[in-house]
Simulated scan of single mutants.
Amino acid sequence: MSYLLTQLANGLSYGLVLGLIAVGFVIVFTATGVLNFAHGSVLLAGAYLVAVLQPTVGFWAAAAVGIAGAALLGVLINAVLVRNLAEANPGTAAILMLGVDILLLTELTRRIGNRVIPMGAPWGADRVEFAGVSLPTSRALAALVAVVLFAALWFLFARTRTGVAMRAAAADGDTASLMGIRLSRTGAAGWALAGALAAIAGIFLASFPAPGVAPTVALSAFAAIPAWVLGGFDSVVGAIVGGLVVGVATALAVGYEAELHVLGSGFGEVVPYLVMILVLLVRPSGLFGSKEAVRV
């Protein structure tokens, strides 16, 4: 029983991290109509900045720079490449994001090489235990930080003028523009917020289970895509729920892989996509998404 509870706890904490990444997808999609397939490279860029700077300035200062750098990278992608394409042709913008992802990932891979750059996180490989459940400290902190950030996002979107402006722009950009809301500003804010969330997720993913920053960290964003689609392209709540569903399903599949040997090794890697397909067969718009959401 304790093993099952541990796997569930691992799945929930991992799912919350996936939720952070998936929420970034949602925010960019609702703010600018773009399927941001460069999100994984932005995540890797933020984690890379933390890893290379932490020996000099310390982990916490490096984390602040990495998060700010990922946010700025998102703003630059939007300002330089996306702003004039997103509304006119979402399909073109999605393909453009694939190209951006390849370019960024190639450059970051060139810089990292075959190394694994230590993240330098102060929690290291420590573990916490509670009621018979043992979790890596990184996972426990990730879950706590994710919950705090989700609460902050709720406050931002529900209680602040900036958040209300972003919601209005997402609901009806033309009407919001006529009411004086600057769509370019709300779009930039959305890309910056998504970049910052990706960097935070990257910090935790690169400290556990990975021993540090490597190009494969960018692939973590692909695991968040099923969570994003599962919850609904345009739903923040759906992204969080989708992340939890995918995280728990993945943890259980990996934890009980021996019992599921008939399905083959590595079954846990395809579980997120299997869950996504099964849900979309019943609810094509996702669990919480609106039916008008654009598919590419």
Results as ranks from 00 to 15, higher is better:
L85F: 13
G15D: 00
T56C: 07
N84E: 09
L5W: 12
I21Q: 02
N36T: 12
G46K: 10
A88K: 15
N89S: 14
T32K: 09
L72P: 00
G19F: 02
A71C: 07
Q54P: 05
G91V: 14
L8E: 02
L16H: 02
I77M: 13
A88Q: 13
I95P: 11
N84I: 14
L18S: 00
S13F: 00
G33S: 03
L76E: 05
L98A: 13
G69K: 10
I21W: 01
L5F: 15
G69E: 01
I21C: 02
L16T: 14
T30F: 06
A71P: 01
A86R: 09
G69C: 05
H39F: 04
A70I: 09
Y14Q: 14
L16K: 05
A86F: 06
A64M: 11
M97L: 14
L16D: 03
A88I: 11
A94V: 08
V34Y: 15
S13Q: 05
V28H: 05
L72H: 11
L85M: 15
F37H: 11
N78F: 10
A88H: 12
V34G: 07
N89Q: 13
P55R: 11
A22M: 04
V57D: 01
F29N: 14
N89A: 13
W60K: 13
V50M: 05
G46S: 05
T30A: 09
P90W: 06
L76T: 08
N78H: 15
V52C: 01
A70P: 00
